[in-house]
Amino acid sequence: MDPTHVVVTSGNEVGEWARKIIEVYMTWYTFFASSNVLAMGWIFGSEIDQSVRPMLKPICILFAILNVLGAISTGVVGSSVGPQIPEFKKLIYWAAGANGFALLGFVVVWWVCYKRLSAPLPAAILARPGATININSAGNTVINN
Rank of each mutant, 00 (worst) to 15 (best):
G139W: 01
V77G: 03
T141W: 00
G130C: 08
M1Q: 06
I92T: 10
W110A: 07
W28I: 01
F31M: 10
I133S: 07
E13L: 13
K57T: 10
K115T: 07
V14L: 12
E16K: 14
K90H: 09
I61N: 00
I48V: 14
V7P: 03
G70Y: 00
S80T: 14
M26P: 03
V52M: 09
N134V: 08
T9Y: 08
G105D: 02
N67T: 03
G11A: 06
V37C: 03
A64L: 01
F44M: 11
Y29L: 15
Y114I: 05
G78N: 04
V8P: 01
L104R: 08
N144S: 11
F32L: 09
V6T: 10
A33S: 14
S34E: 15
L38C: 06
H5G: 07
F63K: 13
G70I: 01
G97H: 06
K20I: 14
S79N: 14
I21D: 11
A102T: 11
P58L: 04
D2N: 15
S51T: 11
G105M: 02
T74G: 15
E16Y: 06
L104W: 04
N136Y: 10
D49G: 05
A127G: 09
A119S: 13
V24A: 10
K20M: 14
A18R: 02
L126Q: 13
K20A: 15
G11N: 10
A102G: 08
I48G: 04
Y29Q: 12
W42T: 09
G11K: 05
V76P: 05
E23R: 14
G15T: 13
A96C: 05
L117Q: 09
S73V: 02
A119E: 14
F63L: 13
S79P: 01
R19M: 12
G15E: 05
S35P: 04
I125L: 13
T141V: 15
W28D: 11
P3D: 03
G11I: 03
M55D: 12
N99P: 00
A98E: 07
G70M: 00
K20W: 09
G100Q: 12
I92L: 13
A98Y: 05
A123M: 15
A127P: 08
I61C: 01
V107H: 03
I43D: 00
I43F: 02
V24D: 09
V7C: 05
N99C: 13
S46V: 04
M40T: 07
A131D: 10
T30L: 03
V24H: 01
N145K: 06
V7D: 08
N145E: 12
T74A: 04
P83E: 04
K115E: 06
F31G: 10
L62D: 08
D49E: 13
S35L: 09
M1C: 06
A71R: 05
F63D: 00
V142N: 05
A18T: 12
A71Q: 05
P58H: 06
C60Y: 01
I85E: 10
A127V: 06
W17Q: 12
V81E: 01
